[in-house]
Design a protein around this nucleic acid. Structure first.
Lengths: 245, 245
DNA sequence: CGGTTCCTTGAGAGAACTCAACGTCGGTGG
DNA sequence: CCACCGACGTTGAGTTCTCTCAAGGAACCG
């Protein structure tokens, strides 16, 4: 909680609270950041199965920046079907799709123990005026999330969508592929029955494209996976980026 | 092209170029608007079948505000399948999903004779700093487009998606339902074969939910359509908004 | 008038779903 | 300690929604 005064490289200004991850707090100069955290940001912890960050229909009070963990946004329609609208990892902003009418369009819960920083919407708008980098960051995040949604909303096969999802998740974890969410969640996200997720995963394993350790997949034949996932456009073409800096 | 000096009501600041539509130009005070249009905005006309606004992979130079007409954004994957990522109507911003990496993720063409105002990305960012309303507008548009994409990306039936789409389009046209795009485009947008679009449309007609005049649908039983489309969440629940102001 | 695009309708095929059953795992409590 | 329970993953069999393929009609255009 106390500010870590350790100086990091100046090329990437980092958040004073969580230096390891990009998030809202990385924007702006140090003094402004400091006052921002002291006055505006409320940190919040969430445990899986222990209440939601917010629920469908709530008034959107805050935008959240994920500090740690993994969260999912979902809705339940009249027929009882769950629709997963997205997963959020450290650095992501939660609530961007609700800004336009200040009404939460999904319920957000933690899949693993998670922490988020809450910024009141009004303060966010104010900060965006004072700090251009903040505005750029919010726009970039919205743009990125929009691009993802449009990519996965395409008319692709189960193999294409799942391969794209696995590659995408692996990149989000810097080369390590963890799946904090259940196959049921993955299915509801990719518009697949859980059985189809399982079968497709097994099919990948049979083809020696992935290996499954304790239900946790590991990509073996990256080029094959990339080739299948390419049409989706969720992961870029370039196959040479597996290194962590 | 000359500025129309007619004074309109002050409650809704309107664009100096196209007073009838909301767009980027409505933001900010009159003097700033004027200088903005004189220095930054390039207007561009597009005819259907006559070249694209931009193509997949292009560097994103400008963000476009639709002044008139209707445009579609699409990609063609390795298998030759077209994926329609969205339709743009007057007031919409084109290119928001490309901001994050300044690379166009789709090809955009006009479906009917259309006009757009181009704003260089760098100038847009600058304007967002000077004019808070501009920043708010861009964020709102990005948020809205994201919400739409997430809503339609859900796992719904052909009837649900098409009903939601028709209601959505009708609202965009202030109560009149025009469909500037072909059934093939609608299908590629909603992940349906064109035959399925046609059959579902006919099914709606058989149920007396819509009537078809020269291939152009008119919604007859709005409540039935709304009930089917409700789970999608693309159109709000309230059934009392059919009036044009 | 041929050529093209779009819409329509039918028949068959297929990808994914539903339903059902079973094994595993981790918690909970008797 | 073990029985019970629920959540999760797995596998099989049958079903269905949507797609594909095919063909024809209508409208438009050079």
């Amino acid at each position: 909680m106390a500010f870590d005064a350790t100086q990091r490289d100046q090329t990437r200004t980092e958040c004073l609270v969580c230096p390891a991850t990009r998030c809202l707090g990385r924007c702006g100069d140090g003094a402004l950041q400091r006052s921002w955290f002291e006055t505006l940001v409320t940190q919040r912890s969430l445990m899986p199965g222990n209440g939601a960050l917010f629920r469908v229909g709530d008034a959107l009070q805050d935008v959240y920046s994920v500090r740690a963990g993994c969260l999912k946004a979902y809705t339940v329609d009249a027929d009882g079907n769950e629709h997963v609208r997205g997963f959020y990892l450290p650095g992501d902003l939660i609530g961007l799709d609700a800004i336009s009418d200040a009404r939460c369009r999904s319920t957000v819960v933690a899949l693993v123990p998670s922490q988020v920083c809450a910024t009141p919407l009004s303060q966010l708008r104010r900060m965006m005026r004072r700090q251009p980098r903040m505005a750029d960051y919010v726009i970039d995040q919205a743009s990125r999330e929009l691009g993802q949604a449009l990519a996965l909303s395409g008319n692709f096969t189960a193999e294409q969508r799942l391969a794209a999802f696995l590659l995408h998740m692996r990149r989000r974890f810097d080369g390590d592929l963890h799946l904090p969410m259940s196959q049921r969640d993955i299915g509801n996200y990719l518009r697949l029955a859980t059985e189809t997720v399982c079968r497709t995963m097994k099919a990948f394993e049979r083809k020696r494209w992935i290996r499954l350790f304790e239900h946790s997949p590991r990509i073996v034949d990256e080029s094959a996976m990339r080739q299948v996932a390419a049409p989706v456009g969720l992961v870029e073409e370039d196959p040479s980026l597996a290194e962590a800096a």
